[in-house]
Design a protein around this nucleic acid. Sequence first.
DNA 1: ACGTCCCGCCAGGGG
DNA 2: CCCCTGGCGGGACGT
Length: 822
Amino acid sequence: LKTPLKQAATSQLVLTERQPDCQPLTTPPKPKETPPADPWTPTSNLKMLISAASPEIRSREQRRQLSDSSSEVLQTKHCLQEHLLGDEYEKSQPSRKEKSLGLLCHKFLARYPDYPSPSQKSYICLDEVTEELHVERRRIYDIVNVLESLHMVSRLARNRYVWHGRHNLPQTLQALKKVGEENKYIQQIQMIKKREYEHEFDPDGERNEEMASSFGSSEQSEMSFVELPGVEFRAASVNGRKYKSLRVMSQKFVMLFLVSTPQIVSLEVAAKILIGEDQLEDLDKSKFKTKIRRLYDIANVLSSLKLIKKVHVTEERGRKPAFKWTGPEVLPNTQDTKLEATSTTCAPPISESIPSKEQCSKALFPSKGKQNFTRHSSLIKLVKSIENDRRKIQSAPTSPVKISTSTYQSLPVFPNTIAQFPAITKHQLEGQSKTAEEMQMKCALSSSPEAVPKPEPSQQPALSQPLGVCPASHSSVSPVILPHPQSGVSYAICLHPSQAHTVTTYSPGFMLQPLPCANITGIKSNNSKVLNKITTEEGDTQRGPDEPTKSLAAEERPETKSETSSQRCLKRSQALPENNLIKRRKSDEESLDTSLTFFPSGYLIPLTHCTHGNKAECSNKEKAGVCSLQHTAYSSSITGVIPMPASELKTVNIPAFHITPLNIMLSPNSIAAAPVLSTSCLNSSSTSSAPNPSSSALNFMLQHIGLIPAGVQVAANPVLQHVPVSSQSENINHSSGSTNVQEGKVIEFTFYSPINESNFLFSLQPSAPKEPQEPQAVTENFFRTPGGPNTEPSISANSDGTQRTSQGTLYIPQRKLEVSED
DNA sequence: ACGTCCCGCCAGGGG
DNA sequence: CCCCTGGCGGGACGT
């Protein structure tokens, strides 16, 4: 049937006729001026809270209110009909927007506290909700389902849900992130982007083999709902079956954000991935369309939760809808001690009978999957190894109980992040060259001089000992430091002067370098118009009427801190009228700010000589505030580490660099001054000896990332777009006067690797000193691989690239991406 | 013209 | 069997 025509479009007569039919639940036409049951006034908010606390009161009150409002509404309607005609009446009708799921969701959320006190459980009765909100039941399901996917509510029984609020959010997100990583979504995204890119040239020869191969290998059929220890999906065998599509979809969608590096996901990509996952076969259009529709539904409620916001990614192709994660950053591992006790976010403590890993894998790969290919087993294995690693680190072999936190506590800033590192490392390296693995292990993990490629199961991970990371005084940014076997120092990036061009080319990888206990110095370059960039303009996504109802002071990503605040009600009540004025100037040509700080979001390259200091020294420095976020110049503090001409540098607390047109340009001088990467690790590899530091580093990086197969060495003479790097960059340098990339923007680079024919994306986020949270995210990112398909056996297989690789051609498609508010 | 997504049919399954 | 759930997609609305 058809969607009923907008009432306004119909005649009065029709309207009159329809009235009797109007079910009480039908959205009553409410005059804009006086929303009948506006939950947005302080009073109503209070009522909400009260009623939420007491179902009895609520229903009683509601009953009364309902009758009131409904009759009121009817009257209003009649009145309007009588006095207003046509257009006028039409205007009084609730617009489509006013009936949006997002708005509805806001209303819904307004009914419950974000952080309900554990003592008073609030229940949700769908009937009540539907009545009070005057909506069709169906709509509530949409909302509840995604809330459920985040464990913000859980179903008790028919018609009944419990409200958990955001208490579980951290864990949920963490779990989702983990699963997302295990799913290798990053790779999938890259794959899709690559495909997209290819289609730009050859829009025809698409899918077929490509699709089959890429997805065939990248898919683990469906994945079931990710549960959380505390919030199981009891109360319904429905649990095991379908009927969770929206929930699962929602979770996957969220995973995509948590896993990808600029945390921006376009609907298109999301849809493709979600489709590709369960049915690689028909990628027909309708299916895609449907998926998109669902994603909008999900996105709407996620937006209401302020976990994401809508943005637009602009490519040469045009504007594509996308969403940006604005929710809390998620660290790889919980900091939450209580969760720690659980040992895993995937399974309940009672894990002996049901090992957590099994739970995880079970969730991920239901055995019923028709096509459980290699992926299946390999991933499970992966999960297993991760699990093992983590276990080793987290607790004594025998006791799954909480470990002597002392050890832990001694791990500063990001204990969890760090702890997780080995697992991630292994994860990432799996299927990759042993060489790389060795290096990685040695550099990052092993604390003993005799680095062991693969720590024996029994062997206590190096991490058990304090790594000399910056103490956690500042939860914010401090760079994470990884131990280095030989020197005990951490990593840093080194560039060889003579390889400046190389560096330039591959810089993205290199920039991802945090400096131990110190701030990193940005190297200045004069121009930085990045071809492949994404700009994000902050602003409120919430669409909708100009009623003060919807925008909840969402402008400056308050979510991060709002998370900690328990003043939800307050927040809710202080709705701010929203205006799209929150404009942010798009990159103007007259950029003034030449020096920008970006957060690398990719790799970590082990280095030595970064510090002469030892752990103690490091921590001292830390205490001294060196690691703090202050936007102070710390050049002096790091001079010892990386001597660079002050003039050339802009000191920042975080790894910083400047962007140039095609890539990040590091000033040769600066580079020259920079310490050279210790090749100790590299040399230890079975591969050919590293010609020179930069070369080694380059190869290391490429291998690590998966751009090139292990063992292959790339000549330090890559070409951009088939054009010599130098010239290319110069051209651009001159052409673009805008070095400035406004804060709040993200720069993204896409690399195309001819070796395995994939695009790789690197992104940089501008540092935001004011936002303590941001840095964390970044730091965390250092441990993450942007996605090296190479880690995947199936893919690396098709890399005949040895030869091409040797030619050192790095193909960087020129793409322009821009993210903007809508 | 296209992005967004409301609306409600109707199948499936729980109680 | 009733009714809750929720997949699904037509086509309306917004820009």
